[in-house]
């Protein structure tokens, strides 16, 4: 099978990598609807499905930053719409404090963003992703956690095989 490496042009201009944690019921379904409506948005975002925004441990965000991702989006159901009634309310408290503490230690809040996107808000999802990508692009690469340290040994996959 001949396949040409089409990924080369990536190296030319730096493009931010964004990881998006989307709740299964609202935002993930919203992202699906954005797709079936063929509304395009920047390709910088990688989506990770979680059952609920309440599942997102603030430490996931630290872990993601430490792993070198340039930006993070966490998106869940609008207040009152949570499939599990209160997951997004609990999450909102955690994100509120995390957001402020990250800022205080010098991590621009635009790098870690939050949104409510319902299963029907296809335009909003595309807009949110575009906005986050633009913000992170303006901030530049996440060099915060790539300062000289003990090198790759602390950065690669750490979870052993089952």
């Amino acid at each position: 099978m001949e396949a040409k490496p089409e990924t080369e042009k990536k190296e030319k201009n730096w493009e931010p990598k964004i990881l998006a944690f989307l709740c299964r019921w609202c935002s993930y379904a919203g992202a699906d609807l954005t797709g079936s409506s063929r509304i395009s948005y920047p390709a910088n975002v990688r989506i990770l499905r979680v059952p609920c925004s309440g599942r997102v441990n603030p430490l996931f965000i630290l872990k993601t930053l430490r792993s070198g991702m340039d930006g993070i989006l966490v998106s869940g159901c609008h207040p009152g719409d949570c499939h599990y009634t209160a997951g997004n309310y609990n999450a909102r408290r955690k994100f509120a404090i995390l957001s402020r503490l990250l800022e205080y230690v010098g991590i621009d809040p635009r790098r870690v963003q939050f949104s409510w996107v319902s299963a029907s808000e296809r335009d909003k999802f595309a807009k949110v992703v575009s906005a986050v990508v633009a913000d992170v692009k303006a901030l530049g690469p996440n060099e915060l956690f790539q300062l000289p340290d003990f090198g790759q040994m602390t950065k690669g996959p750490t979870s052993p095989d089952p």
Binding site: P58, L62, L65, R66, F145, L147, M153
Partner: peptide, 19 residues
């Protein structure tokens, strides 16, 4: 978080502690 006192991991550790 890595147990080694690399600066990035120290950041993560202190934020974890705080949270």
């Amino acid at each position: 978080v890595s147990p080694l006192p690399a600066e990035g991991d120290n950041f993560v550790f202190h934020l974890m502690r705080l949270l």
